[in-house]
């Protein structure tokens, strides 16, 4: 088992190096310096700023410096856009906020869509199945943006006008568990509605495959109650694809949702990342992608291991 994990890790090291390099090269197509100088800046200011950012060095040296800080878990490099704030601090404050948005969203979506998918699969081909599938397709065909724009307008602004009391925040964020529903519930609901369509369809396909399996027929033939067939037999056997899908989604929880965070003013990872890209704040983009890529690779490996644990046919060689 450990040999397997180590082998996988070693195999993914070049992938990791390539990600960092690719990102560095892409970012450096732009000039991050001028925007950070004030009005009436001189050529000397420009040169000294470049030097301060280390951009005057050849790219392989910059690459080396970056790799070193990543592999020593040193995130103490300062943000270019906000002098005095380190990349590590930004990550530390932003990631929990993104998680406060994405984890409940993933949880609710997964639970509801599995439930709906089971229903759909159970009544496969009947009107209820068709209706659910069609609703999923309808939901998938509307742009994310439209959900957000109208969600904010009706869900936050109009609702408050009608009820005379604020229910959901229009924009902004305050930490604390008691504040969570006010600031986060609306974005979470929007996110659930958006991803419901995709998840329901996926899980339905999984369930459909299970309903055709022999053991369900056997269970039914034995006269097991329908709910038992559904929840115990079907769900248990559909666990592998479900867990895999959830596992693969996990690293994306950290990235947050750029659009939702931007619209609702939640300073999570998506928000920070987009403004870092817009402001040419290279250390933040690089540090963040390094962390994300690490998590992503880890989750791939973890998925492989899970497969092996759940499915005795797959072996860890």
């Amino acid at each position: 088992m450990w040999a397997f994990i180590i082998r996988k890790l070693v195999y993914n090291i070049p992938v990791y190096l390539a990600i960092i390099f690719l990102l560095m090269v892409l970012l450096r197509q732009r000039d991050p310096v001028t925007g950070k100088l004030g009005k009436n800046a001189t050529q000397e200011d420009y040169i000294s700023k470049r030097k301060e950012f280390g951009l005057d060095q050849p790219i392989y040296l910059q690459y080396g410096v970056l790799l070193k800080s990543i592999f020593t878990f040193d995130f103490s490099q300062e943000s270019w856009n906000e002098p005095g704030v380190t990349v590590g601090e930004k990550l530390r404050t932003a990631v929990p906020r993104s998680l406060a948005l994405t984890v409940p969203a993933l949880g609710i979506t997964t639970v509801i869509s599995i439930f709906v998918a089971m229903l759909s699969a159970f009544y496969r081909g009947r009107w209820i199945d068709r209706l659910l599938v069609f609703c999923a397709v309808l939901g998938m065909s509307v742009s994310f943006l439209v959900y957000i724009i109208f969600g904010q307008y009706f869900g936050a602004y109009k609702l408050q006008q009608w009820l005379g009391t604020p229910v959901f925040s229009i924009h902004g964020y305050e930490s604390g568990l008691l504040n969570w529903p006010f600031f986060m519930l609306l974005p979470v609901l929007i996110s659930v509605i958006v991803s419901m369509g995709y998840d329901t369809r996926f899980y339905r396909a999984v369930m459909v495959e299970e309903t055709q399996a022999d053991y369900i027929t056997t269970a039914r033939a034995k006269g097991a109650p329908q709910s038992k067939v559904m929840f115990v037999h079907m769900l248990r056997n559909a666990m592998i694809p479900i867990v895999t899908r959830v596992m693969i989604t996990l690293p994306f929880l950290v990235t947050g949702s750029i659009l939702l965070e931007e619209f609702f003013g939640i300073p999570g990872m998506g928000y920070v990342l987009l403004s870092a890209i817009r402001n040419d704040d290279f250390p933040v983009v690089e540090g963040f992608t390094a962390v994300f890529a690490g998590l992503f690779i880890m989750s791939i490996i973890a998925t492989d291991i899970l497969y092996a644990v759940f499915d005795p046919r797959v072996r860890l060689q």
Binding site: A18, T255, L273, I297
Partner: peptide
């Protein structure tokens, strides 16, 4: 490599 960078990023 390509899929390890968040898509939107």
């Amino acid at each position: 490599t390509f899929s390890s960078i968040p898509n939107l990023v």
